[in-house]
Every structure is written in C-alpha cells, then in structure tokens.
Simulated assay, not measured.
Amino acid sequence: MSVKYSVVMRKNPSKISEPGKYYALAQAYGEMDFDAICTDVDSRCTVTKADVSAVIESVLVSMKAGLANGQVVRLGNFGSFQVGVNGKGAESEKEYTSSLIKGTRIAFRPGKLLTNMQKTLSYTQVAKLPVKTSAVVPGA
C-alpha cells in the first residue's frame, strides 16, 4: 500500500515573518463509496452484496442509537466511536447549564486493525494537485 503525497510550503502562523517550511500533504486519489465496499466484501465471502449492505445499514442504526444514549460504540479491532461536546465555559459548576453546549462531535479512535495498517504504509511523492477555482460566468 502506498500513500501518495505532494510537498507544500506552510508558514508558521505565530511566526509569519519567518520563512515557511515544506511538509508532506496526503493526496487522495478517488474514493471507495458504500456500493464499492459492499461489492468488495461480497467478492471475498459467501454473503451477497444485498446482505452486506443490509448488515452495514443495521450496524449504523445500532451505532446511532448507542451514541445518542451516550455509549462508546466499539467495533472490535476496527475502533471505537464516542460523542463529545463543544460549548462555552461558566464561572462555576453551579452556573453551568446545558444551554452552554453549542454542538457535538463524534470522536473516532482507530483500533488495532487500522493502527497496524498505518505501520505498513509506504509513501510515493506525486505532483501537487491543481488548485480548484470557481468558474466565473460572464454577466452573472
């Protein structure tokens, strides 16, 4: 497995007058969508693509319910998911109310399967991807 990367210059925002340094930036090439995952799993086992799809969809429903109930959802060696909250602070514990919570995030912690995969990756430098620009429509 090879992770493709390009090299980009970045400035330190706290030391803007200093010259920038060059860093690797991972480049994604394509994507593997839900349908492709189901097809891939189907090709390596005895269940059908429809069965794979149904099981994954059911797992997602269970995950949603578990996370909404404040549970950590562990998927074996794949990893775990947990809801975290973002909000404003209060001067004291007594003054803190749920109205200060402004949003949530879902934290993912990779398990052994993914952390071990990371240890085996190789890296290939590629050209920088072109910067996307929005097309200007005349008269718009």
Rank of each mutant, 00 (worst) to 15 (best):
L129A: 14
G30F: 09
V126D: 06
E93M: 09
V72C: 11
K119H: 08
E18D: 14
R109F: 10
S134C: 10
Q82C: 12
Y23S: 03
E18S: 13
F34C: 01
G87H: 10
A127P: 02
N86F: 09
V126H: 08
T115K: 15
R74T: 13
P19N: 07
K15I: 00
L60H: 02
V55I: 03
Q82I: 13
S17E: 11
S58E: 08
V55Q: 05
G89H: 05
S17D: 12
E18A: 10
S43Q: 10
T104E: 06
S43V: 00
A28C: 04
T46C: 09
V47P: 01
I16H: 00
T97E: 02
A26Q: 04
Y123M: 09
L114T: 04
V72L: 10
G70N: 03
G30T: 03
Q71A: 11
S6G: 08
G66L: 10
K119G: 12
Y123D: 05
F78E: 06
D35N: 13
P130N: 04
V55T: 03
K88N: 13
L129S: 14
G76C: 02
P110K: 00
G30E: 06
V55K: 04
S134T: 14
S122T: 15
I56V: 14
A65S: 12
M9K: 13
K49H: 06
F108C: 03
T46S: 11
D33V: 08
P130L: 02
M32V: 15
S98G: 13
V85F: 14
T104I: 15
A107R: 15
V83F: 01
Y5G: 04
F81I: 10
S80D: 07
A68D: 11
G84M: 12
E91N: 11
I106Y: 01
G70P: 00
V52R: 06
G111L: 14
